[in-house]
Design a protein around this nucleic acid. Structure first.
Lengths: 126, 126
DNA sequence: AATATTCTACGAAGAATTTCGTAAAAAGTT
DNA sequence: AACTTTTTACGAAATTCTTCGTAGAATATT
């Protein structure tokens, strides 16, 4: 297999890196620590494992290693959506979308955004 | 905590029960077996655990126990979407929806469905 | 009634994930 | 240079999830 689906803990790390770009373990751990209690070596270990798996790339030239994402945010998100669609929505991404829209107090602005997005989808069809 | 988030294996079982209603272990196992190889006692054990967790209810009056879902399909699906939104979309369900719509070759019919759904959302606002 | 089949209960092995302690290397400080 | 801090490496414990073997109870079959 190529790159495995990230686990939940791994996703938390990916999100930090997707948002802030290449980061040190220290930085990622600081970010995670604002959300939950987590030891430094725990984060380190996870990131090392992720590098082994191919989820992260690391630059070991400097004193402190710099980790960067080796997977695209969009591809990963799509992978997770597809997985959820299969495991919880009988394979229907549309049902998933409906559910996400339905049980959500969407603002008028959001609804308009979706409409615009749909228009765009129709326009750019191939 | 009340009812925990179902695991992947548990979701497969829930889907069978959501679709077919109250079921025996035998039936659920037969259904799962059409998708993947799985031992009878494996399914049994999982369903027993799910009953302990509060994901399933069971009727033990008869010879063979009958299991029914103790969690609503819709609530569970929403729970999973919310979780995915948080762990992979920075908490934004809208981003999740966009992604789901975007990287999906949506048919015209599906797009129209979503539009109708949005109209309905606006109409039934409180 | 004896035999065979089906089902539940139990426990435990296996696998994947998460956590962290300890030690050594590297860098910074006094 | 000696000391402190930071970082990496390693391994293993703890947790959660999954799988299944075995035994015994319940039911059905011959």
């Amino acid at each position: 297999m190529s790159v495995p689906k990230p686990t939940e803990g791994e996703l938390e790390i990916l999100q930090v890196i997707w948002e802030h770009g290449p980061s040190t373990v220290r930085f990622v751990n600081d970010q995670l620590s604002t959300q939950k209690k987590v030891g430094y070596t725990t984060t380190l270990k996870l990131m090392q494992i992720m590098a082994d798996k191919g989820l992260l790339r690391r630059d070991t030239t400097g004193k402190t290693h710099i980790y960067d994402s080796a997977v695209s945010q969009q591809k990963t998100q799509q992978q997770l959506i597809d997985k959820l669609a299969v495991t919880a929505f009988g394979g229907s991404a549309m049902k998933l979308v409906m559910q996400a829209l339905g049980n959500k107090k969407s603002t008028q602005k959001e609804i308009d955004e979706i409409r615009a997005f749909l228009d765009q989808l129709e326009g750019g069809e191939k």
